[in-house]
Deep mutational scan, measured.
Amino acid sequence: QGEKVEGLQAQALYPWRAKKDNHLNFNKNDVITVLEQQDMWWFGEVQGQKGWFPKSYVKLISG
């Protein structure tokens, strides 16, 4: 089970394309609201879409 977080935002360092239905698509420089953190994967929201993404593709910009 991941840790729920509030008020964290991350900026995409690279584009990410979903490999599964529960993954989040985003483009480089998109700002993602992080909702949950697990070891290597984070759950977040961007442009009304929610899903999992690899944390190595983003950098935290707040929180």
Results as ranks from 00 to 15, higher is better:
Q1Y: 03
Q38V: 05
S56R: 10
I61P: 11
K20G: 12
T33K: 10
E3S: 05
E36L: 11
H23V: 08
L60S: 08
K59A: 08
S56D: 10
V34M: 01
V46M: 12
G2S: 13
Y14E: 14
G7D: 11
G51A: 04
P15Y: 06
P15A: 14
G63R: 13
V31A: 06
F43Y: 10
A18Q: 03
Q9D: 15
D30C: 08
L13Q: 07
E45T: 15
L24H: 01
W16T: 02
D39C: 06
G63L: 11
I61R: 09
W42V: 04
L8K: 09
E45P: 00
G51I: 04
G51M: 00
M40I: 14
Q38M: 12
K28M: 07
Q49E: 15
E6V: 10
L24M: 02
P15N: 15
T33V: 10
K19S: 14
V58D: 01
S56W: 04
K55R: 14
K4R: 09
Q1T: 10
Q37T: 12
E45L: 11
I61Q: 11
D21E: 10
V58S: 01
W41T: 02
V5Q: 13
W41S: 06
L24K: 00
M40E: 14
I61Y: 07
D30Q: 13
Q49A: 11
T33S: 10
K50Q: 05
F43P: 01
N22D: 13
V31F: 13
N25R: 08
W16M: 05
E6I: 05
F43T: 01
V34Y: 01
V5R: 15
S56F: 06
K59H: 07
S56A: 09
K50P: 06
K4D: 02
R17P: 05
L24Q: 02
T33F: 06
F53R: 00
T33M: 12
E36D: 01
M40P: 14
G44N: 00
D21Y: 10
A18M: 11
N29V: 01
K28Y: 06
A18S: 12
Q38W: 05
Q1L: 08
N25P: 03
E36K: 14
R17H: 10
D30S: 06
F53W: 01
K59N: 10
L8Y: 15
L35W: 15
E36Y: 05
T33E: 11
D30E: 11
R17L: 13
G63A: 12
K50Y: 03
K55L: 06
Q38N: 03
A12M: 00
W41N: 09
T33N: 07
A18E: 07
D39R: 08
K28P: 02
P15R: 13
D21A: 13
D21W: 10
W52M: 01
G48H: 04
F43S: 03
D21V: 14
V46D: 04
P54S: 00
N29F: 07
E3H: 11
Y14H: 10
N22A: 10
F43M: 10
N29A: 10
Q37F: 11
V58I: 03
L13R: 09
K20I: 11
K59R: 12
K20C: 08
I61M: 04
F53Y: 02
D21I: 09
V34A: 00
E6T: 07
A18R: 06
W42H: 02
A12L: 00
F26P: 00
S62L: 11
K55E: 04
Q11W: 10
G63K: 04
A10S: 03
D30A: 08
V5L: 04
N27V: 15
N27A: 10
K59F: 04
E6G: 12
L8E: 13
W41P: 00
K20T: 11
W42D: 03
E45S: 12
W41E: 02
K20Q: 08
Q9V: 11
L60I: 06
K28C: 08
Q1A: 08
N25V: 07
K4N: 13
V5D: 15
M40Y: 04
L13I: 04
Q1K: 03
L24R: 02
Y57F: 15
K50L: 04
E45H: 15
K55M: 03
V46Q: 06
G44P: 00
Y14N: 12
E36T: 09
Y14T: 08
K19R: 13
L60C: 14
K50A: 08
Q37E: 08
T33P: 00
E6S: 08
I32G: 02
S56E: 08
G63S: 06
G63D: 15
E45Y: 14
W41V: 05
I61T: 09
E3T: 05
K59V: 07
Y57Q: 09
E3I: 15
K55N: 12
Q11D: 01
W52I: 03
E6D: 07
V31K: 13
D21K: 10
Q49G: 13
D39F: 05
E36G: 11
W42E: 01
N29L: 06
W41A: 03
P15C: 12
K55V: 01
Q47W: 09
N27R: 13
Q49C: 14
Q38K: 08
V58M: 00
Q9N: 14
W42L: 11
D21L: 13
I32K: 00
V34L: 04
A18F: 06
W41H: 04
Q47T: 13
L24N: 02
K19I: 13
Y14K: 10
E6N: 11
V46C: 14
T33Q: 09
F43I: 02
D30H: 03
H23N: 04
W52L: 01
A18L: 06
L35K: 15
F26G: 00
N22L: 05
K19N: 12
D39Y: 07
E36C: 13
K19L: 12
K50D: 06
D39V: 05
N25W: 03
Q37R: 12
W16N: 07
Q9A: 11
D21R: 09
Y57G: 02
Q9W: 10
I61G: 07
L13W: 05
G48F: 03
E45V: 13
E3Q: 14
L13C: 06
E36W: 10
Q49T: 05
N29S: 09
K50H: 06
N29R: 08
A10M: 07
Q47M: 10
E6Y: 10
S62N: 09
Q11Y: 11
V46A: 14
I32M: 03
Q38P: 05
N25L: 05
D30T: 09
Q37A: 13
Q49W: 05
F53V: 02
G48D: 12
L60T: 08
W42C: 12
Q11I: 02
H23S: 05
Q49P: 02
Q37Y: 03
P15L: 04
S56I: 03
L13E: 06
P15K: 09
L24P: 04
L24F: 03
F43N: 03
D30L: 01
G7S: 14
D21H: 14
I61A: 11
A12R: 00
Q11G: 03
K4C: 15
F53L: 02
Q47F: 15
R17K: 04
E3L: 06
W41G: 01
P54E: 03
E6C: 08
N22R: 09
K59Y: 04
A10K: 09
Q11A: 06
K59T: 05
K59M: 10
Q9P: 08
T33L: 09
S62K: 09
E3D: 13
V58C: 08
V34I: 15
W16F: 11
Y57M: 14
G2Q: 06
I61H: 03
Q47P: 05
Q11P: 00
G2M: 15
I32L: 07
W41D: 06
L35M: 13
A12C: 03
G44D: 00
L35E: 06
N22K: 14
K19Y: 11
Y57H: 06
E36H: 07
S56G: 09
E3N: 14
K20A: 13
D21G: 11
W16I: 15
G51V: 00
M40R: 09
Q37H: 06
K59W: 01
P54F: 01
D39L: 04
V58F: 01
L8R: 11
G48V: 02
M40A: 11
G44W: 00
I61E: 11
D39M: 07
T33D: 15
Q38A: 03
Q9G: 05
N25S: 11
M40H: 05
E6H: 03
F26T: 01
